[in-house]
């Protein structure tokens, strides 16, 4: 187990090593869903929620696999657990709030193939985080993801008013914006220890 303090894990996951802008995890929803501010924030929060649940689940799985001496099953069991978690969250939201379910729509099942979730599970295992550290790590990563998504959506809403050259329309201009955002986030590097 590492000795890193909870606060430094949180800052590290959300700002310094932002999942989207420094680790390139979850780029697909980042480019796909960041068109409107409202959908971006909803997507971000549902990813954060799934991350929290998946983080606790994969922590348990890892303990079990270590007991069984079967590390080669790690990847397969992680992905199955994440897929079922997403399914569970989907049913839960459908039951609790049908309105929210309708607005999230297609995004929920897509979270399964969001590399940020699996990446989170793999990172927390590789770094040997304890249960509490894992939860804080998941919270930081999820909020960092949401922050990046909201920033991007805000910029892209403004960008609609700008005149973009023909060849740069669509993905290319989003990538340039993402690059600039990524450079900005490097300014947080000094926050760590």
């Amino acid at each position: 187990m590492t000795e890193q303090s909870l606060w430094s894990i949180f800052i590290n996951a959300s700002l310094i090593n932002n999942f989207v802008l420094a680790y390139f995890l979850g780029i697909c929803p980042f480019l796909g869903v960041s068109g409107k501010l409202a959908t971006a924030s909803r997507m971000g929060l549902s990813v954060t929620f799934v991350m929290l649940v998946a983080s606790v689940c994969t922590y348990g799985i890892n303990v079990l696999l270590t007991l069984l001496h079967a590390p080669y099953l790690q990847l397969i069991s992680y992905i199955v657990v994440i897929a079922s978690t997403v399914q569970l969250v989907e049913m839960f939201i459908k039951k609790i709030s049908p309105a929210l379910f309708r607005t999230l729509g297609i995004f929920l099942p897509l979270i399964t193939t969001n590399c940020a979730i699996l990446g989170l599970a793999l990172f927390q295992t590789n770094r040997g985080y304890g249960l509490l550290q894992s939860i804080v790590f998941a919270l930081g990563a999820g909020l960092g993801f949401t922050l990046a998504l909201i920033l991007m959506a805000g910029i892209r809403e403004k960008l609609e008013l700008a005149e973009v050259p023909n060849i740069a329309q669509g993905t290319a201009v989003s990538l340039i914006v993402a690059g600039i955002l990524s450079l900005t986030f490097m300014g947080f590097a000094g926050l760590g220890n």
Binding site: L21, A22, F24, N166, I167, A168, T171, A172, V173, L175, I176, A178, G179, I180, S182, L183, M186
Partner: peptide, 20 residues
Amino acid sequence: IMLLPGGAFFVLALWMLLIN
């Protein structure tokens, strides 16, 4: 900058511009 995360976004964007 090319080795930093930002560079990756810029290089990919430039390739896309070229291909478009």
